[in-house]
């Protein structure tokens, strides 16, 4: 068959290119532009070179926020992934329970970030909050406004509450795609419950788990709204994650140059870590 060459086809791609340019490329370039200049307002800019980057990388404030953020991501992954798998394994595979469970699972995902924050902000208050009041009534000293440990616990529980569903839904999708014959064969081979999980269910969930870990890592590494609404980054700086720090720099102090430099470094870190995750997990997958 003869191939038809027609360069007019490029026009069909044009809308996407324009869209991506305006939504991603141009904003990113303005950030690059800010990151190498200094301004005192009135649209007067001075060339600053790599000054802001050097300042950022030597600032303890940035590294502390980064470590906090990595610890946070690690903790929520360590909770949400096993918990998500566990819930998905125990969800019904057929019958009326399926839609009920799916809707219940999807609910937290449908709530806007700042509403989630507000819910937990009120829920955890020890004067009027249902959780805070009763935890204190039980004799446990809990106050997320003053105690940084309590603030961390609150933020982590909130994230687990909000996002475990995503892991559950992805794992569930992986699980229901396993044909019955696999379970029947496992029964005939005398496989234990653990062996069924290890050799049938886990390998089949492999791919979706990869996506779940990537999504959850990226999201948690960029988390802003919920902790901002609940703790505002406090007490002190104890829950100030990278994005909260970034917003404080950019909008609070209006330091556009440093903030732009920070955005870029931040962006590169997310990109790098996601790439590392992806490569490690897909390589592992290929080796087996």
């Amino acid at each position: 068959m003869e191939k038809t060459w027609n360069n007019k086809a490029w026009f069909l791609v044009l809308p996407v290119l324009v869209l991506v340019a305006f939504s991603a490329v141009i904003p990113l370039m303005t950030v690059v532009n800010y990151s190498v200049q200094d301004t005192f307002g009135n649209n007067v800019f001075f060339w600053a070179g790599t000054e802001w980057f050097e300042e950022l990388l030597s600032s303890s404030r940035f590294w502390e926020a980064m470590v906090r953020n990595l610890i946070f991501s690690f903790i929520i992954l360590a909770i949400e992934v096993p918990l998500g798998i566990f819930i998905a394994l125990n969800m019904p595979k057929k019958g009326w329970g399926v839609p009920v469970c799916l809707v219940l699972m999807a609910l937290p995902l449908l709530i806007p970030w700042n509403v989630v924050g507000t819910i937990w902000q009120v829920f955890g208050r020890n004067d009027i909050g249902l959780l805070g009041y009763y935890v204190n009534a039980l004799g446990i000293d809990y106050n997320y406004v003053q105690d940084s440990f309590d603030a961390w616990v609150t933020v982590i529980i909130m994230d687990v509450w909000h996002w475990t569903s995503l892991v559950v839904l992805l794992c569930y999708a992986g699980l229901v795609s396993i044909p019955d014959a696999f379970y029947q064969a496992a029964k005939i081979d005398g496989a234990s419950r653990w062996a069924v999980f290890r050799y049938i269910q886990l390998p089949k969930m492999n791919r979706v788990l990869l996506i779940a870990v990537l999504l959850r890592f990226m999201d948690s590494f960029m988390i802003y709204t919920e902790p901002f609404v609940v703790t505002g980054g406090g007490p002190g700086n104890s829950t100030t994650f990278l994005s909260i720090d970034l917003v404080k720099t950019a909008l609070g102090q209006f330091d556009l140059g440093p903030a732009a430099a920070m955005s870029l470094v931040y962006f590169l870190i997310v990109l790098l870590l996601s790439w590392v995750f992806y490569t490690v997990m897909t390589n592992y997958d290929a080796e087996r």
Partner: peptide, 15 residues
């Protein structure tokens, strides 16, 4: 103590 072979091959593909 029965062995059964199914329509679609069932293997444990990580093994």
């Amino acid at each position: 103590n029965i062995a059964q072979v199914f329509q679609f091959p069932v293997i444990y593909d990580t093994m």
